[in-house]
Write a protein that binds this DNA or RNA. Sequence first.
RNA 1: GGGCGAUUGGCUCAGUGGUAGAGCACUCCGUUCACAUCGGAGGGGUCACUGGUUCGAAUCCAGUAUCGCCCA
Length: 1069
Amino acid sequence: MAMDKTFNAAEAEPRLYQAWEEAGAFRAGANASRDESFCVMIPPPNVTGALHVGHAFNNTLQDILVRWHRMRGFDTLWQPGQDHAGIATQLQVEKMLAAQGDPGRRELGREKFLEKVWEWKGQYGGTIVEQLKRLGCSCDWDRNAFTMAGAPGDPRTGHEQSPNFHDAVIRVFVDMYRKGYIYRGKRLVNWDPHFETAISDLEVENVEVAGHMWHFKYPLAGGATYEYLEKDEDGNVVFRETRDYISIATTRPETMLGDGAVAVHPSDERYAPIVGQLCEIPVGPKEHRRLIPIITDDYPDPDFGSGAVKITGAHDFNDYQVARRGGIPMYRLMDTRGVMRDDGAPYAEAASVALAVANGERTLGVAEADALNLVPDHLRGLDRFEARAKVVEEITAEGLAVMTRADDPRLGGGAKPAPAPEPGPHAEGTEAPDQVRGAESLVPLVEAKPIMQPFGDRSKVVIEPMLTDQWFVDAEKVVGPALEAVRSGEVKIIPESGEKTYYHWLENIEPWCISRQLWWGHQIPVWYGLDLSVEDFKDDEGDGNLDLVELGRLLNEGGMLHRGDVHHCGASLEEVTDRFLDDNADIPSPLSHATLVEVADKHAAIHRLAESLAHYAVDQDPTHLVYPVWRDPDVLDTWFSSGLWPIGTLGWPEDTEELRRYFPTDVLVTGFDILFFWVARMMMMQLAVVDQVPFHTVYLHQLVRDEKGKKMSKTTGNVIDPLEIVDEFGADALRFTNASMAAIGGVLKLSKERITGYRNFGTKLWNAVRFAEMNEVFNDAVPQLAASELNPQAAVNRWIIGETAQVREEVDAALASYRFNDAANGLYAFVWGKVCDWYVELSKPLLQGDDAAAQAETRATMRWVMDQCLILLHPFMPFITEELWSQTGNRAKMLVHGDWPAHGTDLIDPEAEAEMTWVIAVIENTRSARSQMRVPAGLYVPMLVTQIDAAGQAAWDRNEALIRRLARIDSLSRVEALPKGTISISAPGASFGMPLADIIDIGAERERLEKSLGKLGKELGGLRGRLGNPKFVDSAPEEVVEETRANLAAREEEERKIKEALARLAEIA
RNA sequence: GGGCGAUUGGCUCAGUGGUAGAGCACUCCGUUCACAUCGGAGGGGUCACUGGUUCGAAUCCAGUAUCGCCCA
């Protein structure tokens, strides 16, 4: 059956993939023939994800490594899976419910909503798996894992065999909690007011937007004044003014309400006289203006703005640090929706407490400060952007805005009396009064300037730094081993620059916020109970029993509603029950004997306890008393669970065979951007939990960009869909392009031109095999031999065997050091440049000639060579190679399990190599001369030789048919001297000529020769210069000097021949 | 502002001390015998700049310029 002219990827790819899967070709350990294992964990894509070019690139590299190891007989596992992507999935499902007109998340309630999520996961969660298959990824899909596997409600669709990840996550949390690595605390976190949850830095996009910088006066307390001086570089006073205020610049006026201080740099002489004094926040009811201290801190930049910075510890990350250093109270201003707080005591009351703090009359604990609502009554309940407009308006109306001339360039464009506040959902037009626009009139100084603003990458709303109670991993406690593992070289990061980044980040690590206020995720395994160990509670009778009066007091006054809760961490309620009961053992009976029950939340707990006590009051039956506890409603950050990916997917905490065989795993291939978010955390967690590194090598790559180096984005419209590429060019072309781009640390620019080129490469390979097939190379009669059994006579066959051995070594070396581009480019150059361009061409006279022995050995050799091409290319282009493998004779195994060659450079035959190098030089030089002399391409011409050394003569004799065919020569004659009008052709050790006096152009020939001479002259100059330098001969390595000498000799011979040829031309001219 | 990196032919990029390569594009020639998704032959770079180290620098060092990424 004749082969098609091209490979039909669209038809073959699904068929081949199915065949691999049916044969179980990708199962862990398939084709294993040795003890060593090789394991790659897929960086789990989001379960909501769809394949993009980044996935395609990343997974191509993994597949190359995996297929390469599998073919070499390693016990190989490529572990696939997806992560549950808390926010993204929850959002997706909410959207779906809305689109279907179904009840929303809150209406459904947690349990019902989670059922919907599981349904959604079952239906759509496998999308990316199917897409990875189209790329040819050889994952062990039977083991497909999911970071929520085993969680309550899991119907096990799409991850049927996944280890119970939920157990692993909960176990790790409990374990790390008990080791003291996890704590609960109030810290500043990125808060998404839309989803009402903390989010990670990774989920925050900092975008430059047009913003404003307002300048306001904070009056000094009690009308105090000071001399404000500005000096130039030489210390001369250039500005002097008596001021009763300090000037502050801010991009977020609404946060002024929560200011705890004004800070200036300790070296700033301008403000030295007033450091330590109090100043007034110029907003809020006049009679309750809050006073805050002027402090020093290194954070303010004296050259930026006025040099003074307001400190709002609860709403700004920099201010938070200053506040912590300076013991400045942090006042939270907003609720979870980014709306100005409307809870707690009236403003007057709160402000007086804050004033007492500012005056040093009292201090506040973190929780107490947080409970204080310092939003003036009339601003309560406003959106943060509405509040901003109000604050600006009020300060300006009171005359406390810094004023400037209307033509001040800082105002940007036309001066606006009171610019609109930041763009926000509720940004309204300005209500500022019209003012005269003359340059002389004064307007508030509101600079128009670009500011970096954080947005939630899913919600697209402005992220609010928010002081909230969250769970944290005390990263400082677990960072040590993770740093040491890389420093010691136990774990290697490629490229090396990644190691620097890794150190820099880990050495400055911050606590890691792991709680999220979502429903979809691993619920935190912590239960809370009411704190009954009331210190000031008095058991009147001292009899250890509560009477009704005492119970009443406990409920109403005992602080049960106001005191903190107690909590315990454990894998299940059963695990924490005893701990709660132990806590309660000391409190008066009958409460000490209460039975523990679980309720929904704290409100329910209080209600339930009260109810229980009321019953007790009536029936005095202590057996009905209950102690209600409730579980933390928050879930864990998705990164916390995917941090356990290496051990979790292998079945930890069970002591599984997979864990023993494949852990620690080998290589992690992932994007540079998640070095911190994932790689570092996996290192920390695996080391903290099982005291082993998760992998020995981390291969980091860049973002895949478009052909111009731009990030792909929907807005720019430059997104390349990898599946469209697969449809158009085939998966192999995309894969080969990915590999050839993958220089270590390289920028990745994907262009269709390049993909087309590698699709063409596939066609080239296809047709080379097709040629072989047409020449009966794959007939059953042709033996399938090992390299060592071939022993061909013809130099061309011996030569190509050596070339193949060499490229195999190059490919192995390149892959071993993750130089995918070198491996791919080496194979491209070999298959196209050596096999197709030369070996196939040179073989034609032998295959089609009448020397049966030569024909037979050439067939056998070509069969071997073609097989080697398919084997070596298989990890890069699995589909086309597998198809060719199946079309070329009976095979014991599919190529996916083909045996990767181990033949060495002992197959290189230096004599054959030298001979073929000479033959190729003769052919190329002849073709070049013919082409430049415009000898018709098809015309067979005679060749003369005047001088040829023994090696040359032997090479000619043995390869005459090849040379004649490829150089189009019809005869070779020995002559004493070349006749006039001969085109000169040289080869090492020989001088040839083509006597074409009647058709050549003397001038053109002279031009050709002189050009060659010119080039040679440059080279000769360099070579002679070097060898003429005694220092070079003395200090350069022997072999370099030798090489240079040999090179010079060869060039001199060439120069001599060209000069002779020019002399001959001169005779006829 | 801090950190990391880049600058090589028209384009995209390799190249860790021995005098510069690839692919694409371009020019010319060629469709009878694997392939026009092809073959043959060519042109094209003072390796960003300035100094230094070295017998020798695209490569190592210092500085300058421009650009990019990350963090603030």
